[in-house]
Amino acid sequence: MDNLPFTFLDSFAFWNKPQEDIEQCTDAEREKLFGQAYRPKFFPKDQLPHNLSEYIQQLKYVLVGMNPGNAIAEHPQEPFLNFHGSKNSADYRLAAAVYGTKLWGSLMTDLSQQIQSDSTKVRIDANDVQALEHHLDALGVAQDAVLVALGQTTFNNLNKFAQRKVLYIPHYSNSNNGSGDNRWDAKRVHSRILTMTK
C-alpha cells in the first residue's frame, strides 16, 4: 500500500456495484440494488488505483464519520473494512448515495478511534480533529481537500475545529431518526451531494 500510514479507521468509497443497469433508476431503487449487491466485511481492492500515494494527493474530498461501531471488532484483519461492515450497518446506503458523484472513490475515515455503537457515549474535542488532520497530512491529503461530515455531531466538531473546509450530509445509519435535513433520504442526500460538489 505504498507504505502509507493507514489505520483501521481508513477506507475508500468503493463498493460492489449492482449488475443491473442503475443509470436510469430512481435514488430509492439504486439504494435497494446496492443493498442487494452488498458484500459484508468485504472491500473491493480491485477498484483501488495502482499508485495510492499519487491518488490520495489528488483527492478533493474526504468522507468523515464520527467513530467505528462495536461490530468493527468482528471484522477480519484486512485493510479498508471500516464502512464496509455487516449489511445492517447500512453502508450500502452511503454507497448508493455517492455513486455517480465526485465522492465515489474518496478516502473515508472516522474522527474518533473509540469503538462504540452508542454515539451518545462518544466525546469529541479539538484534539480529535487535530489528530485527524495530522493523519490526513501524513497520508498526503491536500490542504484544500474538503471534509464531508457524516452526521450532525461530526459536522459540528469539524466545522468548529478543522482547518480544512467542511460540508455535511446526514448519517446513513438505520438508526438515524433525525428530522428534516438531518434525516436520511436517498433522493435528498444524493441531490445534496451533487449540488455541493459542483
Rank of each mutant, 00 (worst) to 15 (best):
R164Q: 07
A145F: 05
L94S: 10
V166H: 05
A28P: 00
H171L: 09
K121H: 09
D27N: 13
K102W: 01
Q36G: 00
E133P: 06
A138S: 14
S191C: 12
V62H: 02
D128M: 05
Q47A: 10
P68F: 03
T154W: 04
E31Q: 13
F161C: 02
G140L: 02
K17L: 15
V62R: 00
N127F: 00
K165Y: 06
S191Y: 00
H75K: 01
R183S: 05
D181I: 15
A186E: 12
K87M: 06
A37Q: 12
N156W: 08
Q114S: 12
N159S: 15
G65C: 13
D144N: 15
I115T: 10
D2R: 01
L59H: 01
G180Q: 06
K165C: 08
N3Q: 08
K45D: 15
G85V: 10
N157P: 10
Q57H: 12
E29V: 10
L52K: 01
D10M: 03
G85R: 09
A73F: 14
W184Q: 01
L94G: 05
Q116T: 08
H50G: 04
A97D: 09
H134K: 13
V166N: 04
W15F: 14
D46W: 00
T26W: 11
N177E: 10
A142R: 10
G85S: 07
Q130H: 11
L139Q: 00
F83L: 10
Y99F: 14
N176I: 01
L94I: 09
L111C: 07
R30V: 06
N157S: 04
H84R: 10
Q130L: 09
L103R: 03
K187D: 15
G35E: 03
R123Q: 12
S106K: 00
F34Q: 05
K41M: 13
L94M: 14
R164C: 10
T195F: 13
F14T: 02
Q113D: 14
K187R: 12
R39N: 05
N127I: 06
V62Y: 08
N51V: 07
A126P: 01
V129D: 05
L94A: 03
E78T: 09
D10I: 03
P49G: 07
T153N: 09
Q113A: 14
V122D: 13
V141A: 04
L81Y: 02
A149P: 09
L147A: 01
R164S: 14
P170S: 04
N177S: 12
L158H: 06
T101E: 06
L103W: 08
P18T: 06
N127A: 14
L158M: 06
F80L: 03
L94T: 02
L9C: 11
N3I: 04
M108P: 03
F83D: 03
W15K: 04
S112N: 07
L63I: 15
L158W: 08
Q113C: 09
A28I: 13
Q57K: 15
W15H: 08
W184T: 02
A71G: 08
I56M: 09
Y38R: 05
K17G: 02
A28E: 14
Y172Q: 07
L103Y: 12
K45Q: 09
F155T: 00
I193N: 03
S175N: 14
M1E: 08
L136M: 02
S179V: 14
Q152C: 05
M196D: 09
E29R: 10
D144E: 15
T153Q: 09
D91N: 12
S179F: 13
E29T: 07
P5V: 07
Q143R: 11
L81V: 03
Y99Q: 12
S175E: 12
R39L: 11
